[in-house]
Design a binder for these strands. Sequence first.
DNA 1: ATCTGATAGTTCAGTCCTGTACTTGTTTAG
DNA 2: CTAAACAAGTACAGGACTGAACTATCAGAT
Lengths: 135, 135
Amino acid sequence: MAKIDLNKVWALDYRLVTSVIVEVAPALRELGIECKELFLLAELDAHPHPAVLAEALLMPKPTVTMYSKRLQSAGFIARELDSTDLRRHRLSLTGDGRKVMTRGLALLAAAFGRRMNRLTAAQQAEFKTLVEKML
Amino acid sequence: MAKIDLNKVWALDYRLVTSVIVEVAPALRELGIECKELFLLAELDAHPHPAVLAEALLMPKPTVTMYSKRLQSAGFIARELDSTDLRRHRLSLTGDGRKVMTRGLALLAAAFGRRMNRLTAAQQAEFKTLVEKML
DNA sequence: ATCTGATAGTTCAGTCCTGTACTTGTTTAG
DNA sequence: CTAAACAAGTACAGGACTGAACTATCAGAT
């Protein structure tokens, strides 16, 4: 088995991810959010605390702070102090926030789905397995 | 075959790509370039004209202009007018530029390789095939 | 020759994003 | 109990990035 060209594969995967983002960004903007804000909304249920969120999203803490502020003032998330640890803030989706997240994820799934559909169902499952293994 | 969760797979792949970038960024900075500047350098041989480069890299033209300027003043690329079309500029790597690119790509390949190594050789080849199909 | 529409690239203004340093609150060692 | 160490989150400054508008050149039609 010849060794594969890592940089080639990397470039392909990077391009795949980027192309989806570029494609979806305008529609998301119409929804009132940026792409990374959508990712933040999508992880909120699983990780309600900003510090954990920052780690999960691989973004620096100040970035999470900034997005949180914007999303809060847009009415998409709520913030409350964690009563068991006063350093912590707990973020949660508002009704509007959940609605926007759902729509945004649908747009993302549509764009990514157009690419995944070039694979057979079995290949799609295989792709998922491989990416899971790599992380 | 159950339908896969597109958003899940998307999130995984996004995270994979991002984690590599985040991991490599500090070392690249020591080399004197940003991550996206490396991608630009890496595509320069194949696409010497800024407009084509912008499309290949999925970035807006002004961004390519800005990076080109910085890379030129850092001595990593050269610019010359295309004599057959005075609107066009032809970019090319300098000796230093090629050296930095080679090192940068090696860092990238190392980081991405650590993830790919969790797959068998056959799976790696399969992954490449699948990503190629999707683009 | 000149006009028209298209293309290459840049400028600029303004937003986005993040590194550094800080405040506030919690835990732990003594 | 207190002080040092640590953790959550923020403020701010400054660099990174991009959309809109612009200049210069080209190619084709009249």
